[in-house]
Simulated scan of single mutants.
Amino acid sequence: MYHAYRSYSDSELAFLLTQDDEQAFTEIYNRFYGLLFIHASKRLNDDEEAKDVVQQLFESLWIKRSQVEPDGNLSAYLYTAIRNRILDVFSHQKVENKYVDSLQSFMDQDHILTDYRVREKQMAALIEQEIAALPPKMREIFVLSRKENKSHKEIAAELGLSELTVKTQVKKALRILKSRLGLFVYVAFLLKIHQ
C-alpha cells in the first residue's frame, strides 16, 4: 500500500496531506528532507542547525497541513518555507551577536572601570599609610605642603621653622615615599596632588 505513495505526484501528496494522510506526509518527508537539509546546510554552514531548521519545517508542515494549497507547487512551497526559516536564524543570530557584543563591551568597560577604581583606592590607601609612617614633624610639614598646598614660606611661618628646614623635610619625605612606594605609585601620587 505505502509503495503506491512513491508514485504520487507532489500535488497529489499535497492534497492527501490536507486530508490528514500520515503516509502522504511521510512520503513528502522522505522525498524532500535530504534536499532541504543540503540547502539549509550550505546556507547556514552548520549541520546541526540545518537539521533543526528542517525538522521544525516538517513539524510546522504537519501542524498547518490544512493550509497547504492542494494544487500548488509543493517543492516551491517547501523551499520558500526553508528560506524564510534560514533568514529567521540569521536575523536571530544578528540580534544575539549584537546583544552579546554590547553586553561584552559593557562588561569590559565596567570591569576596567571597577578594576581602575579598586586599584586607585588601594593606591590611595597605600600612600596614606606611608605618609602616616613618616616621623611626626616631617609628616606635618609634608601634609601642609602637599595636601594643603601651602608654600615653604607659609609653613615656616606657621610652624616657626626656617624655610630651609621646611624644604629639607619635604625633600626627605618625598625620598622616603619614593623608596617605599616604588616609582609608579610615587609618580601617580605626584600627578594626583598636582591636579
Rank of each mutant, 00 (worst) to 15 (best):
L183V: 04
S162C: 03
A173I: 01
G160L: 10
V166E: 01
S179N: 15
F184E: 12
K171R: 12
R175C: 14
E163H: 10
T168M: 08
V187G: 13
V187P: 01
Y186K: 10
V170L: 01
V166G: 03
L177G: 00
F189A: 06
K171N: 08
I176T: 01
V187H: 03
F184R: 04
L164R: 11
R180Q: 07
G182N: 01
T165M: 09
R180M: 08
A188Q: 11
L183E: 08
T165S: 04
S179A: 10
F189W: 09
L159V: 10
L174I: 04
L161K: 02
L161T: 03
Q169G: 06
T168Q: 09
L174Q: 02
I176Y: 01
K171Q: 05
F184G: 12
K172L: 11
A188D: 07
V170W: 02
L159P: 05
A173L: 02
V187Y: 13
K178G: 08
T168K: 15
K167W: 13
V170K: 02
G160I: 07
T165I: 06
I176K: 01
R175W: 06
Q169Y: 13
R175K: 11
Y186D: 04
K171W: 08
F184T: 09
F184H: 15
A173K: 00
L183P: 04
K172A: 03
L174D: 06
Y186P: 02
K171T: 11
R180G: 09
G182K: 08
T168G: 14
L174G: 10
G160H: 14
K178V: 00
V166L: 12
S162R: 09
T165N: 02
S162V: 14
G160M: 03
L177C: 00
T165R: 05
L164Q: 15
V185I: 06
L164F: 05
K167T: 00
R180P: 14
L177N: 08
S162W: 11
K178L: 07
I176Q: 08
T168S: 12
V170D: 13
V187W: 05
K172S: 04
L181E: 02
L164T: 13
L190E: 00
T165A: 03
Q169T: 13
L177I: 14
I176G: 00
L159R: 04
K172P: 11
L190K: 03
L181Y: 09
K167G: 02
R175F: 06
A173G: 08
Y186R: 08
T165L: 06
K178R: 08
L181D: 00
L181A: 14
T165F: 02
L183R: 09
